[in-house]
């Protein structure tokens, strides 16, 4: 371009020396045209720079939004996970602690009765003692039925307590997604600030489904059912 400009300048000088004004004007127009092209190129460069800056700004604000909302949210969700696992462990331990003495009593009684029963089989038991043993046996049957009911209820409690694994699993998956999102945004930010690679402009993927309700996080808007009673009320209002 510089050589173009130089030859145009030479032509201009010779035209002026020849007093060829028409030619000189024409050359001056050509020089102006060249300058315009340069100007457009510069505007293009500036526009590109502005665009990049805007994109980096939007990534920046995404990180800010994450720091403001998503990270505290994630912290509350993880606290809820701790609370749920603690509750499940408590429920399981309580059931086990309550069942151990029940099982110990059953075992002690059965030992005692089986000793008596052996004596009876060996014909070593006087009739009076046999009568007492019969009464003991009746009582034992009654007691063991109650004990077995207790054991059944305790086992059912232990079973239900394991439901935490599903809920906490779903919550932790969401937090992992958030951490991945955050990582992606930070990588983009680093790429932009070093101006090596343009950032990906796709928005962060949000989970399609709201998932488990974390008290204090997901029930703020009041658009969730916080108990089975809420669900039942809603369904019955729909004619269920």
């Amino acid at each position: 371009m510089n050589s173009d400009l130089l030859s145009l300048a030479r032509d201009l000088v010779s035209a002026l020396e020849r007093s060829d004004e028409a030619k000189a004007d024409e050359i001056l127009d050509q020089v102006a045209g060249l300058r315009e092209t340069q100007l457009f190129k510069e505007i293009g460069r500036l526009t590109r720079q502005l665009h990049d800056t805007m994109v980096s700004f939007s990534v920046d604000s995404k990180i800010a939004a994450m720091a403001e909302h998503d990270i505290p949210d994630a912290k509350e969700r993880l606290h809820y996970v701790i609370a749920m696992t603690e509750q499940a462990a408590d429920q399981t331990l309580t059931a086990v602690e309550e069942l151990m003495p029940v099982s110990d009593d059953l075992s002690a009684q059965i030992n005692q009765l089986s000793g008596q029963w052996s004596r009876f089989l060996d014909r070593e038991m006087p009739f009076e003692e046999f009568k007492a043993m019969s009464a003991d046996l009746s009582q034992y049957f009654e007691q063991s039925r109650a004990s077995l009911d207790k054991i059944q209820a305790g086992l059912s409690d232990i079973l239900m307590a394991q439901g935490f694994q599903d809920i906490t699993g779903q919550i932790i998956r969401r937090v992992i997604d958030l951490v991945q999102d955050l990582e992606g945004s930070m990588v983009n930010l680093i790429k932009i600030s070093s101006r090596k690679i343009s950032p990906s402009t796709g928005p962060a993927e949000h989970p399609e489904l709201p998932g488990p309700v974390v008290p204090g996080v997901d029930d703020r808007a009041g658009d969730v059912a916080t108990s089975q009673v809420d669900v039942d009320d809603l369904l019955s209002s729909l004619g269920f």
Binding site: L209, P210, G211, P212, V213, D223, V224, L234, L238
Partner: peptide, 13 residues
């Protein structure tokens, strides 16, 4: 399910 949004319950209904 753990999904408890009112709109979801209505959708299922």
């Amino acid at each position: 399910t753990a999904e408890a949004k009112r709109e979801q319950i209505i959708m299922a209904a």
